[in-house]
Amino acid sequence: MDAGLIFYGSAIFLMVMGVFIAITGRHLIKILLGIDVFDTGLNLLIVSFGYINGGTAPIFSKYPNIFKNVVDPVPQALVLTAIVIGVAEMAMGLAIVMQIKEKFGTCNIAKLKELKW
């Protein structure tokens, strides 16, 4: 089986699973985790876009480059940033959930029904 297919398949599986968790979950933290799983899947997808089977690190030097299969470095750089951003988002989310638990006394999303009128 092609390695790329595994990566793509598992990445998309993770994304779908993340969304599924977020939609079906009742507990706020579970929903947050669902979003996180979705993000992870996305990151994996991005990395696998740049990945070449059997490729090497993209190091450029004054010597002539002997490796032909250089992995694209940009997606990896992007993913690093995206991971950091994901962490920040998760932190903010958890902070909000903590406050919600304090004020509502529950983490059940169905109980958050203040804003309708």
């Binding site: 977020a22 706020l28 929903i31 979705f38 406050q99 958050l112 804003l115």
Partner: peptide, 29 residues
């Protein structure tokens, strides 16, 4: 705002915003 309404609004915004910006990133890629 730290009252119930503010927190609920914030959480909803966060959920939708997170998914939205993830898809934005996917578009970029």
């Amino acid at each position: 705002g730290k009252d119930k309404k503010a927190l609920e609004g914030g959480f909803k915004y966060m959920m939708i915003g997170a998914i939205g910006s993830s898809l934005y990133l996917l578009g970029i890629i």
